[in-house]
Write a protein that binds this DNA or RNA. Structure first.
Length: 179
DNA sequence: GCCAACGTTGGC
DNA sequence: GCCAACGTTGGC
């Protein structure tokens, strides 16, 4: 599972009990705010949107196999002057085929995908709350307790697992109540 | 805009 | 199955 091999020492398979049906899991979802931002999510009907367009196999595997309804997500803005976790979303639909891969008109179209072999997967997420103060990448890097995060290890992975401890710490750093 | 990291592709 | 070339991500 998980593309085997434990590439480059990032042991995703040791970062939590992702196979436990009962366990609440946490994730970090990256997006370029110029493309889709936390405010965009808030402004959607039901404050809900498909998390589509993921075209990386490792990220795809998380979406397809492990992200569950009720899981928490750190909403991360990338590729801007001050990249940061800006808020919290929750998963409201688990992995299902990403139809944008089948749509020739979509910028995420993938000719290798087909209805019988959808290839790419997405989940649906709903806006929960913004961080009173965004937790910048710089702050995350400067916190030794967060040094295990793929984000800090310069992984470009756009869907990443977050441990319960990291979740708690980042929420607190952003000024959210512990929960 | 630069460029390091790193994922993907394709020739062999 | 190796690996060079190439493309993309994303911090800076």
């Amino acid at each position: 599972m998980l593309s085997g091999k434990g590439r480059r020492g990032i042991g995703y398979d040791t970062r939590g009990c992702y196979d436990c049906d009962q366990a609440m899991n946490y994730w970090l979802l990256k997006t370029e705010p110029g493309c889709f931002s936390m405010d965009d999510l808030k402004n959607r009907p039901d404050m809900t949107e498909h998390w589509d367009g993921v075209r990386n196999y490792q990220a795809r595997n998380f979406l397809r196999d492990q992200v569950k309804v009720g899981d928490g997500a750190l909403f991360y803005h990338s590729n801007i002057p001050e990249p940061a976790v800006v808020g919290i979303a929750e998963v409201v639909r688990a992995g299902y085929p990403d139809f944008t891969a089948l749509d020739p008109g979509s910028e995420h179209f993938d000719p290798k995908a087909s209805p019988l072999n959808p290839l790419w997967y997405m989940v649906d997420v709903r806006y929960v709350e913004k961080m009173p103060s965004p937790v910048t990448l710089e702050k995350i890097r400067n916190n030794p307790l967060l040094s295990g995060m793929p984000l800090v290890k310069r992984s470009r992975l756009s869907v990443q697992p977050v441990t319960a401890e990291e979740w708690r710490i980042i929420r607190a750093m952003g000024g959210l109540e512990s929960r």
